[in-house]
Nucleic acid binder design. Structure first.
Length: 525
DNA sequence: TTAGGGTTAG
């Protein structure tokens, strides 16, 4: 190689500042023209700018640049390993690492965290662990923390604990990784013991504990820590809000959301999605519209999860027109957004429209999934679209490669049952992948009653009672069948059995928004 | 150049 020309600072700083591949290409062209490309340092900077763009084509480009480096420095190797570790397919990162081991360049302390990130499976992580010890990085806190994290997320709590105990020095990140290891496997009590022992905690420490409790539905415990923590960030609020949303504490979701407005934490997409989902569940159109206004005012793009949550909120709060408006005005929609819209139309009695939307999916580059078919089949069932429903059900596996699951069979039993095709419904039920699913028998039973086939109704009701002996509705259903058959003695006996078993009827419950306040009411109120 | 947290639709 010729003597390296003195790099003009302007082009190198332009290279460093490149934010997209086309700017990197410009630098490359300039370097070729000036001969700068022959400087290994300049080429390495080009390479690192390319991978920093995080664009997939940039990765291929960086690969080709890298292959032409005569003697890559450890920095160049590290950049390539990191870039591949972050890509959808991280396997080449490991191959690069093993090539590096056979090259004249030694791995350094930066190499291992990148390599560990690329370990999809545990055997690989164990090999890297051995290599870390062999190459003398077994006491680097960055390397060990990454290793700890790798074990933690792969469920190797015992390995993680062993490593944690042996670490020559630990920082708050090490403790957090250990807490995370326990929490992700539901061992929140053990996590709490560590948490209580910590002399220094940061906001992530608290967040790990809060989401750990929330994920187990222990929202009171999350709330206790949430109230105690000195500083809350957006993740803390979201973990708390998500926990409440998942356990049905919707009014608490909304008050948390209002509370966070007073702090200096700005809601993000995750917050909106969870609050909108709570609005949908309680039918709080007012609060939902408030979020919509907030999103519009702040120029937040409506796409993906947010679009789906808005469509769902408007549908469930009764405003199908606004749901359609969001749907039609959103350019970036994914299959979930379509599913939410199809479901909304179907539950508003617009099954034909729902079906048309389903048929438009392929033309819009979307592949229906299992949920899509639940929604579409249930639309057919509500509208009594027998032929369409049967055709779509048969196409699921044949055309779309999706094996029908219990939910799909449920829709079909419903569809056939409503059409009075009780024998076909029972036949289908017996072909379902999950035997003895109460939902299916319940569907069949109500169809039998509707069409007066009391003989089959008795079979279904008895089956149901056998499957869920503690469900009050099963006793009532069977006793109703006996009443219809005039078998009063059998009906009375069933009510008696219910008493003996201690089965009680739960009152139905719903909520409604009146003047911005959420009210709960029960059947019979 | 290096490690860690939260989300939708049936």
């Amino acid at each position: 190689m010729s003597a390296t020309p003195l790099p003009p600072p302007s082009i190198l700083s332009f290279t460093d500042m490149a934010t997209n591949l086309s700017e990197v290409h410009q630098s490359h062209a300039h370097m070729i023209k000036t001969g700068l490309i022959h400087s290994p340092a300049a080429a390495a900077r080009l390479l690192s700018s390319a991978v920093a763009t995080d664009e997939l084509p940039a990765l291929a480009y960086a690969d080709s640049l890298f292959s032409r480096l005569p003697a890559p420095t450890s920095f160049a190797w590290n950049s390539m390993i990191r870039a591949h570790a972050r890509a959808p397919d991280p396997a080449p990162a490991l191959q690069l690492f093993y090539r590096m081991l056979h090259s004249p360049t030694r791995p350094d302390k930066y190499t291992f965290p990148f390599v560990l990130k690329a370990c999809a499976a545990l055997p690989e992580a164990f090999q890297i662990h051995a290599r870390i010890l062999k190459t003398g990085f077994g006491s680097d806190i960055f390397v060990l923390n990454t290793l700890l994290h790798t074990y933690a997320i792969n469920g190797l709590t015992a390995e993680a604990l062993k490593l944690f105990a042996r670490m020559p020095q630990k920082d708050v990140i090490s403790w957090n990784a250990m807490i995370n290891a326990f929490v992700t496997h539901g061992l929140v009590g053990r996590a709490r013991k560590l948490f209580d022992k910590m002399s220094e905690r940061n906001v992530e420490t608290w967040n790990f504990m809060i989401s750990g409790y929330s994920n187990l539905g222990l929202v009171d415990q999350s709330r206790e820590l949430f109230n105690l923590m000195p500083v809350r960030d957006i993740v803390s609020w979201n973990a708390m809000i998500t926990g409440c949303a998942r356990t049905g504490r919707f009014d608490e979701v909304i008050s948390l959301f209002q509370e966070m407005q007073y702090g200096n934490v700005w809601p993000d997409e995750c917050t909106f999605v969870n609050v909108l989902s709570a609005c949908a569940r309680v039918g709080s159109l007012g609060q939902g519209e408030w979020i919509r206004a907030y999103v519009d005012k702040n120029g937040i793009e409506i796409k993906g999860f947010l679009a789906t949550a808005l469509v769902d909120m408007y549908s469930k709060c009764g405003s199908i027109e606004k749901a359609l408006q969001v749907f039609n005005n959103t350019s970036k929609k994914d299959v979930s957004t379509w599913n939410a819209m199809i479901d909304g139309l179907s539950s508003h009695g617009l099954g034909e429209h729902a079906l048309r939307l389903f048929e438009e999916m392929p033309r819009n580059g979307l592949v229906p999934n299992g949920v899509t078919f639940v929604n579409v089949l249930s639309a057919c069932s509500h509208e009594g679209l027998l032929n369409e429903g049967c055709r779509i059900f048969n196409d699921m596996a044949r055309v779309y490669g999706i094996e029908p699951e219990i939910e799909h069979y449920g829709c079909m039993v419903d569809l056939l049952g409503r059409a009075g095709l009780l024998v076909a419904a029972e036949e289908l039920l017996r072909r379902a992948p999950v035997k003895d699913a109460p939902v299916l028998w319940r569907s069949l039973l109500s169809a039998c009653r509707e069409h007066g086939d009391l003989e089959l109704a008795e079979i279904a009701a008895k089956q149901l009672l056998e499957l869920s002996p503690f469900d009050s509705s099963c006793y009532i259903q069977l006793s109703n069948v006996y009443a219809l058959l005039g078998r009063w003695e059998d009906a009375r006996m069933l009510r008696e059995m219910m008493k003996v078993q201690g089965v009680k009827k739960e009152p139905g419950c719903s909520t409604i928004e009146v003047d911005g306040a959420i009210h709960e009411f029960f059947v019979g109120d």
